Computed example of a mutant assay.
Amino acid sequence: MARTSGDIVIDAPADRVMAAIADFEAYPRWATGMRTVEVRSVGANGLAETVYFELDASPIRDHYTLAYTWNGDRSVSWQIAEPGEMLTSMDGAYTLEPVGGGGTKVTYQLRVEVSIPLLGMLKRKAEKVVVDAALKGLKRHVEAAGD
């Protein structure tokens, strides 16, 4: 199955963008619909391996745990470790690429499966809304922290 993707340029270096992505405790302040985010386990690199989420983004209200794989300041990917009641599968990735002037192009890919039947077109539209909101929220969060 294809992933939904989007990208945005953030006026900050990749290490600062990746630090914001790895700061899960801050997600409820900038990630739409995130009510609770708790790191459940940390790897030898000091980064989260599994993270528990409580999501309240109408019409989806659920809780689930994701497992993360980190690749320096270049990318992070995840997949569902413990599905929720509605979210049965989720995988995605952030890929960071330096651009001129000290900025970073961030590409977000996401694929979600839910327990309720949705037409493919509606599911992709919902994924696109999530991707766009996450990228815009990340941009605002990172750029505000740099001011």
Rank of each mutant, 00 (worst) to 15 (best):
M1N: 13
A2C: 09
A2N: 13
T4N: 00
G6V: 10
G6A: 09
I8G: 01
V9G: 01
V9P: 01
I10C: 02
A12P: 02
P13N: 08
A14T: 05
A14Y: 00
A14M: 04
V17Y: 00
M18H: 02
M18N: 03
M18V: 04
I21K: 00
I21D: 01
A22W: 02
D23V: 02
F24I: 08
F24H: 14
E25P: 14
E25F: 06
Y27V: 11
P28M: 12
P28R: 10
P28D: 09
R29W: 08
W30P: 01
W30I: 05
A31E: 11
G33Q: 11
G33V: 09
G33R: 07
T36D: 14
E38K: 13
E38R: 14
R40A: 11
V42A: 03
A44N: 10
N45Q: 06
G46D: 06
G46N: 05
L47C: 07
L47F: 06
E49R: 09
T50H: 05
T50K: 03
V51Y: 02
V51I: 02
F53L: 13
D56Q: 11
A57Y: 09
P59N: 07
I60T: 12
D62G: 06
Y64A: 06
Y64K: 03
T65C: 08
A67W: 03
Y68H: 12
W70I: 03
W70M: 01
N71F: 13
N71A: 15
G72I: 05
D73Q: 10
D73C: 09
R74K: 15
V76I: 12
S77W: 05
Q79G: 15
A81M: 08
A81F: 08
P83A: 13
P83V: 05
E85C: 08
M86C: 08
M86G: 07
L87R: 02
T88D: 04
S89M: 10
D91E: 13
G92I: 04
G92W: 00
A93E: 05
L96N: 01
E97S: 15
V99Q: 05
G100H: 11
G100F: 10
G100Q: 15
G102K: 02
G102H: 01
G102S: 06
V106G: 02
T107M: 09
T107V: 12
L110C: 08
R111L: 15
V112R: 03
V114G: 13
V114T: 14
V114L: 14
S115C: 09
S115M: 10
L119S: 12
L119N: 11
G120D: 13
G120C: 10
M121F: 12
L122K: 12
K123D: 11
R124V: 07
R124G: 11
A126G: 10
E127L: 06
K128I: 05
V129G: 11
V129N: 12
V130I: 15
V130Y: 07
D132F: 03
D132I: 06
D132C: 10
A133K: 12
A133D: 15
A133Y: 04
L135S: 05
G137Q: 07
K139F: 04
V142W: 00
A144F: 08
A144G: 07
A145P: 01
A145M: 06
A145C: 04
A145I: 01
G146W: 07
